[in-house]
């Protein structure tokens, strides 16, 4: 059996001069660059709104609910009235969960933006 011949495999030459084409669009403030940046801003702002919406519902809804139906405050779970359970304990993991969701998705959006911008325009 013959010795396997070592073959050097190389890809086509990279167009290093063209690699940062889209970052240059942004640097030179062209129409395409502006579109790229606005789309990033819109994506991140939409994410912020999506994460803050549940908080808004809780912060606006809970006082109104207790204002309209004060008897809710008398409901007990394991002897603890519901307001203490919700506002004293449950709200904190809820906030942490929303924050964790936000960080995960915001970082993903930034990675996708970086890939979009750094990829060569071929």
């Amino acid at each position: 059996m013959n010795e396997p011949v070592r073959v050097r495999v190389t890809g086509p030459p990279r167009h290093t001069t063209r690699r940062r084409a889209r970052t240059r669009e942004i640097d030179e403030e062209t129409a395409l660059g502006a579109v790229l940046i606005s789309s990033l801003l819109r994506t991140q702002l939409r994410l912020a709104m999506m994460v803050l919406l549940p908080l808004l519902v809780v912060a606006a809804g809970l006082p109104l609910a207790f204002h309209l139906w004060p008897a809710l405050a008398g409901i007990r779970l394991l002897g603890v009235p519901v307001p203490w359970l919700v506002l004293g304990v449950l709200v904190y993991p809820f906030l942490l969960l929303l924050g964790w969701q936000y960080v995960r998705r915001a970082e993903r959006h930034e990675r996708e933006f970086a890939e979009l911008v750094e990829i060569a325009d071929r």
């Binding site: 994410l47 912020a48 994460v51 803050l52 908080l55 912060a59 506002l87 709200v91 904190y92 906030l95 929303l98 924050g99 936000y102 960080v103």
Partner: peptide
């Protein structure tokens, strides 16, 4: 609750 939630708004915005 507000003093903690303030950090969620700070984080997101």
């Amino acid at each position: 609750v507000g003093w903690t939630a303030g950090y969620l708004l700070l984080l997101a915005l």
